[in-house]
Simulated assay, not measured.
Amino acid sequence: MEADILANQLKERKINPTAMRLLVLDQLIKSDVAMSLVDLETLLDSADRVTIYRTLKKFEEKKLVHTIEDGTGSIKYAICESNCKCNTAFTHAHFHCTQCEQTFCLRNIHLPDIKLPKNFQAEQSSFILKGICDHCSVK
């Protein structure tokens, strides 16, 4: 994606568009799957792991990405939709392929609003489906 467009996306979220932030954002936007820190570190081989991590945390803080704990022990990051409420509660489901180990946002599968008992306060929610993705099922 063009650097100017990426920079504008960052500026809209009040994020300073550094070279590393532009690279990480570009990789996340290009990806069809959620990416881990290790995934990004592999793709951006000249980048420092700590800098990538700090970039992801800044993106999460500014609600540009949301995190997914898919049971692999590695947190995955995916671009938020413009109306995303992911940092307060997931609004959509995720799918983890048990063969290729990729995790996908299922943006068309919305989670119901759950009424909690009195004095219960949810801090996080997730809905992970596990199975075989369309790419692996045709092999």
Rank of each mutant, 00 (worst) to 15 (best):
C80N: 01
D70M: 05
K130Q: 15
S137P: 03
L111C: 13
N87S: 09
K130P: 05
T42M: 14
I15P: 00
F59C: 01
I132E: 04
I109H: 11
F104A: 00
V24P: 01
E41N: 15
F104T: 04
M1Q: 10
R107D: 10
L64F: 03
S82G: 03
A47W: 08
C84T: 00
K115P: 09
S82D: 10
H110G: 09
E123I: 08
D32S: 12
I29M: 09
I114R: 01
K130T: 14
A78V: 07
V24A: 03
R49A: 08
M35Y: 03
H110D: 06
T88S: 11
V138T: 15
I109P: 00
F120E: 10
I15Y: 00
F59V: 01
E2N: 08
G73F: 05
F120Q: 06
T72P: 06
N108A: 11
S31L: 13
C86D: 14
D45N: 12
G131C: 10
I5A: 10
Q99H: 08
L23E: 15
F104N: 00
D4V: 15
N108W: 11
L37T: 01
T67K: 15
G73R: 05
R21M: 05
H92E: 08
H66Q: 06
N87M: 14
I5E: 04
V50Y: 06
K57Y: 09
H92P: 02
N8I: 08
E123T: 14
R49I: 02
F90V: 04
V65C: 06
G71C: 07
Q121Y: 11
V33W: 10
Q102V: 03
A122G: 14
S125F: 04
L28V: 02
I29V: 12
K14T: 07
D113C: 05
S126I: 14
C105P: 08
A7L: 04
Q124H: 09
F90H: 04
E69N: 06
T18D: 02
T98C: 07
G73L: 07
N16K: 05
H94Q: 08
H66C: 05
T67A: 12
K85I: 09
T98P: 04
I132M: 05
Q124D: 12
F59D: 00
S74I: 05
I75S: 06
M20S: 11
P112F: 02
I79F: 00
T18I: 10
Q102W: 06
Q27E: 15
R107F: 11
H92A: 09
D134M: 13
